[in-house]
Design a protein around this nucleic acid. Structure first.
Lengths: 166, 166
DNA sequence: ATTGCTGCAAACGATTTGCATGAGG
DNA sequence: CCTCATGCAAATCGTTTGCAGCAAT
């Protein structure tokens, strides 16, 4: 029912990468945009991660691949990826927009430590059902939801307790 | 199980107001701060609402009571109220921090229209259970959660459909 | 050639802080 | 009197936009 995320999961496979690129390219064609090497580089760097990246964090990664790519391009490409469903925004509670790739992943949620900022993912199908149910009830056409739990992770609990048992 | 919020609910009762003031005053004493008329004014204006207010929105309300109170004071007082549990932050997906008073209210959540920004509250005890359950599983000491659903409200659906049936 | 893309720099908007003055204990 | 609170203005920080030159179609 709930399932712990495996954190050391290897990065996305070659086939998935190719499929994601195709999705992006199709989207670019459909909307009448142009295919550029920067966009490919950024998409790849993005898919290599399993984290929730801020625009700036992704920019740092992209720079390693191609130092000439600017922040603005990363910013705009992330919006583009979000448009075609390859990325989705996650808002934690700290005023920074993060993105994660939705590619080949099940609906999942986050539990965030308010002390150290680390996070755990978890899966919970009930939440999807709730979205559907509540939307129907209030005549909303729902598109997505966010569900985050905040608290202290095990390590920070121990530190907060000052070595004493919790 | 789910319960629609009654939107024209009267504002908070006199006793609750007094109790909230006491909570604030105790907190102020405990932390060694000072009791000021501005803080009382702001607390009252805040409790009078049932909305999720941005700092600026509350500032606008406060100005009506006392035009000399500045934005910064409202901002800092909201932080103070959050500290002593009288207010809590709600993050919708638009980069603005909102507050609502947690005073005498059951755990509830929000469904937000991405088109017009209107929102509906709903109650869902399942979500509280989930918080508890998932926290236990991952050894987090959970403090709170956020659950928001995004979509189109009935009106905006109709507009989007251009008059055609949905 | 035309149109969109890039990346810089500058604008923006919400939030946060420094500081001189004023008020509470 | 001493300390904290206030409110203004300025700084900050993430995000967004304008624009001149560049690249893709």
């Amino acid at each position: 029912m709930l399932q712990k995320r495996i954190d050391d999961q290897p990065s996305i496979s070659r086939e998935m990468m190719r499929e994601a690129e195709e999705i992006l390219h199709r989207h670019i064609k459909r909307v009448g945009l142009k295919h550029t090497s920067q966009r490919d580089t950024i998409l790849r760097a993005f898919l290599e991660t399993r984290e929730h990246l801020s625009t700036d964090e992704l920019y740092q990664l992209v720079k390693k691949q191609d130092p000439k790519i600017g922040f603005t391009t990363v910013y705009r490409t992330l919006k583009l990826l979000a448009e075609c469903g390859l990325a989705s925004e996650v808002a934690f509670h700290d005023g920074i927009t993060r993105y994660e790739h939705q590619y080949n992943r099940r609906s999942h949620h986050h539990m965030v430590c308010t002390e150290c900022g680390s996070s755990v993912e978890f899966f919970s199908p009930e939440v999807d059902k709730l979205e559907e149910e509540i939307g129907r009830k209030h005549h909303y056409q729902t598109t997505r939801h966010t569900f985050q739990i905040y608290g202290l992770c095990e390590d920070c609990r121990k530190k907060a307790a000052g070595g004493r048992p919790i």
